[in-house]
């Protein structure tokens, strides 16, 4: 068992170093120390799951070893700037003031095609639209567009912004979520009143009911009840 544990820890460290060295292209939204566990865990779990002659602990011990390693590194990364730089690296500026930084591009193992593809995925189709492009430590590309390409905000235009907040799904597939109903500041009396107003007997006839941040209520009946969509204006009545 100790051998399994130590071997798993060694493999974690080895794969971690390799992923760290292969660069940010491989990361796909995860930090290197998170990606290692994602890569290894499925394989470790499948062994004892499919092979009955292998004790379950032969899968559990390495997974626990990886879990503890991941927690340890996550803890150290939070505590120490030096370890954070070592474990996660630092973000790289690939485009600076509208100009591609060739040296950084090469050090990140990025081709110009990769950069352009990443920009396209952010709905930026021309390099001249980009003021800064930053390759984050998790492999994501952040883009700051040039001033001309920036979208004006409500504040810039002097318009009252719409109310923003969380929408509450209080009925999902015929089930009433009382917690969501309470969180939205409403109660069952209000809910029953709305149902009667719309001509439904109870929540089982509703596919979805959502209370939006501006107070509007979006309701869709189940197919069996006609599948009608209702949008009710805000207010507690």
């Amino acid at each position: 068992m100790l051998v399994l544990f130590i071997r798993s820890v060694l493999i974690y460290i080895f794969v971690f170093i390799i992923i760290r060295l292969t660069g940010k292209r491989q990361l796909s939204d995860l930090q290197p120390f998170d990606l290692v566990i994602t890569l290894l865990i499925a394989d470790l779990a499948s062994g004892p799951a499919s092979d009955v002659s292998m004790p379950l602990l032969h899968g559990i011990i390495p997974i626990l070893a990886l879990f503890l390693m991941q927690k340890l590194i996550a803890f150290l990364v939070l505590r120490s700037e030096k370890i954070r730089r070592l474990a996660c690296g630092h973000s790289l500026i690939l485009v600076e003031k509208g100009k591609v930084v060739e040296k950084t591009l090469r050090s990140a193992s990025y081709t110009l095609n990769d950069l352009i593809a990443q920009l396209r995925s952010q709905e930026v189709y021309e390099l001249r639209q980009v003021e800064y492009a930053i390759l984050e430590t998790n492999g994501m590309l952040s883009v700051i567009k040039t001033g001309l390409e920036q979208q004006p905000t409500y504040e810039d235009m002097g318009i009252e912004p719409p109310k923003v907040g969380l929408p509450y799904y209080i009925v999902e597939d015929g089930l009433l979520h009382r917690g969501a109903l309470r969180a939205s500041g409403l109660d069952e009396n209000w809910f029953n009143k709305k149902l009667r107003y719309l001509g439904y007997k109870n929540e089982t006839e509703i596919l979805m009911m959502c209370v939006n941040a501006d107070g509007t209520v979006h309701v869709q009946a189940k197919e069996t009840k006609g599948g009608k969509v209702h949008v009710l204006p805000g207010g507690n009545d």
Binding site: M1, L2, F5, I61
Partner: peptide, 18 residues
């Protein structure tokens, strides 16, 4: 809780077979 449980399982699985 998860970390403590992981440690306990690991310690038990080192001591018992040993």
């Amino acid at each position: 809780i998860a970390i403590v449980m992981a440690f306990l399982i690991l310690i038990a699985s080192f001591i018992i077979p040993h």
